[in-house]
Design a binder for these strands. Structure first.
Lengths: 177, 177
DNA sequence: TTGCGTTCGTTGGGTCCCAAACGATAGTAT
DNA sequence: ATACTATCGTTTGGGACCCAACGAACGCAA
C-alpha cells in the first residue's frame, strides 16, 4: 500500500474544465450546477445502496417501486412507471424481479384485460416497514450537514428547477409511457 | 386522444407519503430533499439525452467519458473511471462502445504493460467541439429559472452535501477501483 | 358485426451499472 | 532465481434502462 507518486487528480475537474473551455463561449455556473448535481446524486445513491439496500438485496429502483406502492397503494403499471420515473418497459423487468422475490403481485382485472394491477404482498409490506426507518435515517445522516434554512432553500430550488425543466419539455413531453 | 378520466396523480407523491409514514418517526425534510434530488436529476438527464446527445448517438455516460478526456487530456483507465464516477468494469464497456465508434483509442504503454492509456481520436475531439456548445446551452436553459444568487447557493449546497457524504463514507470508501 | 384505430403491458436489442473473480504484469524479499 | 504480493484492466452474472415494435384487448363507427 504505497502512497501514489503523484497527488490525486482534482475530484471534480472543474478547474481543468474552466481552462479547457475558456476560449469557447461557455456558461460556467450552469456547468458547475449540473455537474455537481450528478456528483451528489451518485454519492447519495451509492450511499443508500451500500449502507441500507444491500442488506435487503434490493436495488434502488426496486426500493423506489416498493415505496410508491407502499405510500400510494396498489396501482396500474403505467401509473406506477410514471411515479417511479422509469418507462413501462423498464418497470416490467423491475416487477419481474420483485415478483420473483414475492414482494409484489400482478393481477389482471376482469373489467379490462389489458390492464395489470400491481400491489404489495404481505411480505412486501413487512419488508418496507423494516427498511424504511433505516433508509430515512441514512437520508437524515446525509442531509445533517445542512442547517434548516439551507436545507429548505435547497428543496425549494429543486422544486423550482423541476418545474422549469418540465416547462421546457412542453409539447415533446417525457411520457414514461 | 381523450383526456384522462381522473386528474393525474401527484407528481411527487409527497402528500401521500406524509400521510403514510405519519405514524412512524420519519424525518420529512430529508425525505423531501432526497426524493426531489432524484426527480431533478432524472429530468436533467432525460432533457440532455433527448435534446442533445441523441442527435450524436451518445449516451450520457459516453458523453461524460469523452468530456473528461477532452478537458483533462489522455489518462489511464482507473483515473478515468474515478473522474467519470463509474467502476473500472463499467468503464471497460463504455470504452468498447466509444472505440467501436472511433471516438477514443486505447494504448498499452511499453513501460508498464498492465496499464491502458485512453485518449481521444481526432474524430472524438471534433465531435466534442460540435456537441459541447449545445450541451452547455441546454444546461443554461435548465438553470435559467434561477437567479444568480439562488444558483450560487444551490451549487454551494451541492458541494456541501458532497463533502458531507464523502465524510460519512470514510473507511468504507467508494473507490470506483 | 365487422373493421379499424387506440391503449394496454411485454419483448428484443443495445447500453450501462456494480461487485466479484480473474489473468497478466510488475515489484519485492528472500 | 524464486516465491510472494500488489496492482492493472477485463470478464462474468444479475439487474436496470431506454426505445421501438408487438400482440392482445378494447371501443366505436359503418
Amino acid at each position: 500500500m504505497t502512497p501514489p507518486p503523484v497527488p490525486p487528480l482534482l475530484p471534480t475537474g472543474e478547474e481543468a474544465a474552466r481552462k479547457r473551455v475558456g476560449d469557447l463561449d461557455v456558461d460556467l455556473p450552469s456547468m458547475a450546477a449540473v455537474s455537481n448535481l450528478f456528483r451528489v446524486v451518485n454519492a447519495v445513491r451509492n450511499y443508500l445502496e451500500r449502507n441500507v439496500l444491500r442488506d435487503y438485496n434490493l436495488t434502488f429502483s426496486g426500493f423506489t417501486t416498493l415505496w410508491v406502492l407502499w405510500v400510494m397503494g396498489s396501482m396500474e403499471t403505467r401509473h406506477l412507471a410514471a411515479e417511479a420515473a422509469v418507462t413501462k418497459g423498464t418497470l416490467t423487468g423491475i416487477l419481474k424481479t420483485l415478483e420473483d422475490r414475492d414482494l409484489v403481485e400482478r393481477v389482471t382485472p376482469e373489467t379490462d384485460r389489458r390492464l395489470t394491477l400491481v400491489h404489495l404482498t404481505r411480505k412486501g409490506e413487512r419488508r418496507m416497514r423494516q427498511i424504511y426507518p433505516r433508509f430515512n435515517a441514512a437520508e437524515r445522516e446525509m442531509t445533517a450537514a445542512l442547517d434548516q434554512q439551507e436545507r429548505d432553500e435547497f428543496v425549494a430550488t429543486l422544486r423550482h428547477l423541476l418545474s422549469a425543466i418540465e416547462g421546457l419539455e412542453q409539447g415533446q413531453a417525457v411520457n414514461y409511457g
